[in-house]
């Protein structure tokens, strides 16, 4: 494997200049002068060996590589035989000490990261990065951009996943509670009022955070039409105008199942997106209980975890609402 470790002379001894080196001195000096002009920091690596400090031409393991010294021809050391090996040993020792520090630092860094205090189920540094990713996404991407729609021939069968918050279901008792309104009161809506809103149909792709996706046909009312109907509280305190001043609506929307077992938070920009529906039909039939009957949220802009089934309460809020999965280590934004 190696042809230089057989040399058992201690590096300090073998590094001492030999008479024959004097012949090379001129050539070395040429290179060293260039090197010195580039970099005055070479002291630190020669400190360990006084004799070497006087010996020019010792190749330096660092420095000067950005100065283009290698363009065209190869950098070469004129050291010969044992000196080359001794010099290499010195550089290796130093480099490998650095390697140990680097490996230790990396392992320590990873351990540090994974052992930080949890912030909603994930070590806090990751929560910060997820928040930054969200800020970047909301800042530079266009929240009004439409998701692709598909042809009828591309519709997939329904794939049911996630039944949290869907226990104890009594259709006759369902009512939609709406909070955070400009009036300051809680309003209750029945299905007939939702269905009275313009009916929207769309064929979009629902993406599960697990990594699969299905194209489904959805029918329901636009969330923005619903918001205009109920009149959410505004940031300015003025009377709401959802269609013309959507940015003035309180910044967040929280949605909950009737039993409170499942809950999601949305940014209002997503909630008011034209493809965000309060949906009552799926693939051409009324919603099944396991798919969120009688009313669920559908938004192709977010992973399925945000597409809450069986909405019992909708709340406009100035602060970020609780979110079932975000509390367990997932990204709160979860947007595409």
């Amino acid at each position: 494997m190696t042809n230089e470790t057989h040399n058992d002379i201690a590096p300090e001894i073998s590094a001492a200049p030999k008479p024959s080196d004097a012949q090379n001195a001129d050539a070395q000096n040429v290179e060293t002068q260039n090197a010195d002009a580039r970099d005055d920091t070479r002291d630190d690596e020669t400190r360990s060996d006084e004799k070497y400090a006087q010996k020019p031409g010792a190749p330096r393991s660092e420095g000067g590589y950005f100065s283009g010294e290698e363009k065209g021809e190869k950098a070469k050391s004129e050291l010969s035989g044992d000196d080359a090996e001794a010099q290499m040993r010195r550089m290796s020792r130093r480099s490998f000490l650095w390697s140990i520090v680097a490996v230790g630092g990396t392992v320590g860094g990873v351990k540090w990261l994974s052992s930080r205090r949890l912030d909603s189920g994930v070590p806090w540094p990751f929560r910060r990065v997820l928040q930054t990713n969200e800020d970047i996404a909301r800042e530079i991407l266009a929240p009004r951009r439409l998701a692709p729609t598909f042809a009828r021939s591309q519709i997939d069968p329904i794939r049911t996943n996630g039944l949290i918050g869907l226990d104890d279901w009594d259709a006759s008792e369902w009512i939609l509670n709406v909070e955070g309104l400009a009036s300051g009161e809680t309003r209750q809506l029945v299905m007939k009022e939702i269905k009275a809103l313009p009916r929207i149909e769309m064929i979009t792709e629902l993406k599960c955070i697990e990594g699969w996706s299905v194209v489904n046909h959805w029918a329901g009312a636009r969330f923005s039409d619903f918001a205009a109907l109920v009149g959410p509280a505004t940031q300015s305190g003025q009377s709401p105008d959802v269609k013309r001043k959507p940015d003035d609506v309180l910044e967040y929307v929280g949605l909950e199942t009737p039993d409170g077992g499942y809950y999601v938070g949305l940014d209002t920009a997503t909630a008011l997106h034209p493809q965000t529906l309060l949906c009552y039909e799926m693939n051409g039939a009324p919603l099944l209980p396991e798919n969120g009957a009688p009313l669920r949220l559908v938004t192709p802009l977010k992973y399925g975890i945000k597409n809450i089934k069986r909405i019992g309460t909708i709340r406009f809020a100035p602060q970020r609402p609780a979110d079932y999965w975000a509390e367990q280590g997932y990204d709160w934004y979860a947007g595409h």
Partner: peptide, 22 residues
């Protein structure tokens, strides 16, 4: 006759070894 020859620039060594754990 042996001599030392420069092979990998410092920058590339950094990129390489940062990339590995990442």
């Amino acid at each position: 006759m042996k001599h030392l020859e420069k092979k990998h620039p410092l920058a590339i060594r950094w990129f390489h070894w940062v990339n590995f754990p990442v």
